[in-house]
């Protein structure tokens, strides 16, 4: 399972997003997620992957988060 697949799984499970609507280029607004949703998502991803993600403006899309997770996993 790729990082993207896991992120999609979490978005579908925790945020009731439509699986087919989630793309690497999807922004939080595209997925109807507000700032509280994104903080929750990032916290869940940290628990899931055992890494620390800096929650800041650079994480704008699903792809940004996938890249940040992969970088975090490499450094582990």
């Amino acid at each position: 399972m790729t990082t993207f697949d896991k992120v999609v799984e979490l978005l579908v499970d925790a945020k009731d997003c439509e699986k087919d609507s989630i793309k690497l280029e999807s922004t939080w607004a595209d997925l109807s997620l507000d700032s509280l949703d994104t903080v929750e998502l990032v916290m869940n991803l940290e628990d899931e992957f055992g890494i620390q993600l800096e929650m800041n403006e650079s994480l704008k899309t699903v792809g940004d988060v996938v890249r940040a997770i992969d970088e975090g996993l490499e450094q582990k």
């Binding site: 509280l36 903080v39 929750e40 916290m43 869940n44 929650m55």
Partner: peptide, 8 residues
């Protein structure tokens, strides 16, 4: 305003 931000 939420538990996730509290944890953070």
């Amino acid at each position: 305003p939420s538990t996730a931000i509290a944890k953070l």
